[in-house]
Write a protein that binds this DNA or RNA. Structure first.
Lengths: 119, 119
DNA sequence: CAGCATCCCTCATGATACTG
DNA sequence: CAGTATCATGAGGGATGCTG
């Protein structure tokens, strides 16, 4: 499911392609959003779902699992009366935020300067 | 690989989602690579194809066109005996490079520190 | 609340071949 | 060289419904 097979081809960058490697971490719809919304602290499943309105529970769960498997997010089950689950960024996940922040920063700058992205 | 497919759904963040907007710019396989390999200067079509071994001419052309449409790259037809085409980053494209560099940086750090991505 | 199971379906990607 | 045209593919995503 998290398989990205089909790699009969040689690695794009001979022997080393950090770009592809890291892009894989934030690949998949909404993955960047999850990281983004977790940057300020832990969030519960439904909170994230509320943050990212357009995502479905299925995809959100999938993404969360993939990110967890990749060591990007940590999953903490809270033994409360109605069991809740809190997700938070791991150290690895935290390292990703600057990259995402850079992307957001570019976009915001573009919006202000040229209104390009809206077109 | 590097699948960051664009979503057809409405922007998740009501009225403002810089993340989605910018992700769209670098969406599509190999788009980040193109930007990356153009960061040091103009490259011709076949040069890019050589840089990014695993990409097919079709996809590379598609990506270049999309990036051109987005104002990320500039296309310059050189009127030489065998007509060549040079691609270069626009100002907008140049703004994207720090973001990509951030991603690469994270990945390299991870590789050194934990060897996580290889697993 | 926090998921998982299913079905379906788009569409970007890849392979191959052809052209100016 | 620098593409374009076609065809095929299948993984990822969406919708809906069910469970502990």
């Amino acid at each position: 499911m998290v398989k990205v097979r089909k790699s009969k081809v040689d690695p794009p960058c001979n022997g080393e392609c950090p770009l592809s490697d890291c892009m894989r971490l934030i690949a998949g719809a909404w993955a960047p959003h999850v990281i983004w919304y977790l940057r300020e602290g832990p969030r519960r499943f439904s909170e994230l779902k509320g943050d990212i309105r357009a995502v479905t529970a299925k995809v959100l769960a999938e993404r969360l699992r993939q990110l967890e498997a990749d060591g990007v997010v940590h999953r903490q089950v809270m033994q409360t009366s109605p069991p809740t689950v809190e997700y938070s960024l791991t150290e690895l996940g935290a390292e990703l935020t600057p990259a995402i922040a850079a992307i957001v920063s570019v976009s915001e700058r573009l919006k202000r300067q040229r209104g390009r992205l809206g077109a």
